Computed example of a mutant assay.
Amino acid sequence: MNGIAALGILLALVATATAAGLVWRATTGRARSARRADTVRAAEVGASAFGERATLLQFSTEFCAPCAATARVLEAAAREEEGVAHVDVDLTERPDLARRFAVLQTPTTLVLDGTGVIRARIGGAARPADVRGTLDRILGSDHVTA
């Protein structure tokens, strides 16, 4: 192979990796509507109760660096809205839940409505604006921020 062909292949690989990285960065941490309307019960994930209006169900692991920042974002959102709870589940202790909810990365957050139905999913570090927008959509326009 000559030098020009090798350089062309190298540039194509760099362009492909850059494009993949940009797509990943644009989608991680964003709320997406749930594909399936699964219902989650509090006891199923080891929680005593969920929020009466919505629940931010976070899946983390002990050594996950972005999990702590996501927990702060979700806790703040739960404090702002009456009837919204934040529940954090350590997948190190509950690997069965990773399979059940198809968690491929931590943190992963499921946004549940008041009946426990999964309404949205956030893969990666949650962005405050996305969490707020998702809660606004689930709670409707009649909610009042504390």
Rank of each mutant, 00 (worst) to 15 (best):
E81H: 15
A17C: 05
R119P: 07
A71I: 01
A20I: 14
S60F: 02
V131G: 03
A5N: 05
E62Q: 14
R121M: 07
R41L: 13
R79T: 08
C64D: 00
R25V: 06
T28M: 14
E52D: 12
M1I: 12
A120Q: 10
L13R: 05
F101S: 05
F63M: 13
V89A: 04
T109M: 03
S33W: 10
A77T: 03
V84A: 09
A5E: 12
L56M: 06
R99V: 10
T92N: 12
P95V: 02
W24D: 14
V84F: 06
T16Q: 14
G46I: 00
L7F: 08
T70H: 05
L56P: 05
C67N: 07
D96V: 07
A71K: 13
A12G: 11
R127T: 08
G116N: 08
T115I: 08
R35S: 11
R99I: 05
D88N: 09
I138G: 01
R35H: 12
L22S: 08
D136W: 09
D88A: 05
V40F: 01
V89R: 05
A65S: 10
I122W: 07
G116W: 05
G8Y: 07
G51M: 00
G83V: 08
S141Q: 11
T55W: 02
R121G: 11
G3Y: 09
A42L: 02
V144Q: 13
E80V: 02
G21K: 02
R72L: 15
V117C: 01
A126T: 02
T109Y: 00
A6I: 11
M1C: 10
A37T: 11
S141A: 14
A17Q: 11
R30H: 15
V87I: 05
R41N: 12
A77S: 07
C64H: 01
L22M: 15
F59Q: 03
R99K: 12
R25H: 13
R132T: 12
L10Y: 04
A26P: 04
S48Y: 00
E81S: 13
A49Y: 00
L56G: 06
V111N: 06
G133R: 15
T106D: 10
R72S: 15
